[in-house]
Nucleic acid binder design. Structure first.
Lengths: 233, 233
DNA sequence: ATTTTTTATATGTCTGCACATATTAGTGAG
DNA sequence: CTCACTAATATGTGCAGACATATAAAAAAT
């Protein structure tokens, strides 16, 4: 049986996946090295490298220099979520976007937030609460702390028209951060802002962004009931 | 001013990011083509290509053949979540893993699930409810429908010891699917299984997986209160 | 003026080669 | 036997060149 030439990285990848699914290579098994596979498939080693690297990224393979490539013991799948501008997310869904600032003050954040942002306890920074609406219905509450030590301009910026979400993206690009997804039960104040019932289960995102090791902002987004964040696998 | 040589793709990427953040190239701007950048940076075009492709993947650039590369209008950040085996997730956190099957029957799924799985209305398939525990405390409820038309072996498999989550991963690799994250309020039956209060806000994952265009399974995971799914940006 | 065809161009990717680098396995000194 | 050093090896990545492919823009045909 002669192999059809697999001379592009996608077909190499397909064949490798086929062999893993077909248990030709079992989980934990060492697979042939790049040079051998390249010869078998009739392509350059770089092509095999790209295919295998892609599969390692996807979590199906584990690779280590000198040790070789093996089929992952736990095939971890990765879902990528797009974190976009709220305005864009709402208009992309075909709804009319609206925005309102609820409160703005300078205050010391709670200890958990202060430590997450690497601030001295008691440091007073900017605190904002706003609501984004879709077709005039509340869509999400944005509760945000901005490190005015790192971003002095935010202290004087006007967030009554432009959301801090958008202002920060335009003015203070971040380099890294953390994000956490969870759920809470609506309390009275949240319920009144989102026009829902107290006790409703709400989807929530906590996000802290940094520029290097300096925290820029920490935000909690609490979404209206029924909100779903979807993606493909 | 002579440029230091940027002869690897990471440093090319860094420089490009620096120029975007520094507004040397503004959002929506067309940036120089790969050949020109390669000459400027003193490296091969393939190196620039890899850097730019990586940034396009990350959502910072938009690239189109012939049209060229431009700075994305909305710099969409992407968070990647690792979807791992529940057992692994729990033991990795240092807890003792436990598993119990709550119910098992054949039934016709609700219309939303049936259509999501592409089943004829009224088709009876396998339905399972199980609980995964961490240190003997309920961690998550797994409510699963398995398409026994596509996976006959599941109809006779024993899920009293091995969770369907794990059985499927070992026996029926999937190729694609959808996943949705949301929140619900605990009702009485969920509260009793998770040993929490009715009305608690709970984090929830709905996932449907396929092999080609044939649905294999659809699962709803309802997590105990306080559960967070974290990742970096 | 509108549609179709052609052409030019930027990205996409393959090849063959080279060298870098991490890491394992073997070697040898103590 | 143990530990430090060395060599071997698989992956990681760079380069120059070539061709493939999508598509925007220009040219030609209607």
């Amino acid at each position: 049986m002669t192999q059809p030439a697999r001379n592009n990285w996608q077909s190499v990848q397909e064949e490798v996946v086929r062999r893993i699914h077909g248990k030709v290579w079992n989980q934990g098994d060492l697979i042939p090295n790049e040079a051998d596979l390249a010869q078998e498939f009739g392509c350059a080693r770089a092509t095999v490298n790209r295919a295998l690297q892609n599969l390692a990224d996807a979590g199906l393979l584990d690779r280590r220099r000198k040790a070789g490539t093996r089929v992952a013991l736990f095939p971890v799948r990765k879902a990528t979520l797009e974190i976009s501008l709220l305005r864009k997310e709402i208009t992309d869904k075909g709804h009319a976007y609206g925005y309102a600032q609820v409160s703005r003050k300078h205050a010391a954040p709670p200890a958990t937030i202060a430590s997450r942002m690497g601030l001295e306890p008691g440091t007073r920074i900017l605190h904002l609460v706003c609501v984004h609406t879709a077709d005039a219905r509340p869509y999400v509450i944005e509760e945000r702390w901005i490190n005015t030590g790192a971003v002095p301009a935010a202290g004087t910026a006007d967030f009554s028209q432009l959301s801090p979400n958008e202002w920060l993206l335009q003015n203070v690009p971040y380099t890294n951060g953390e994000i956490a997804f969870s759920a809470i039960s609506a309390d009275a104040s949240v319920a009144s802002l989102l026009q829902c019932e107290a006790g409703d289960g709400l989807f929530m995102i906590d996000r802290t962004t940094r520029r290097g090791d300096q925290a820029i902002t920490s935000v909690r987004l609490v979404f209206a009931p029924g909100y779903q964040m979807k993606t493909t696998l």
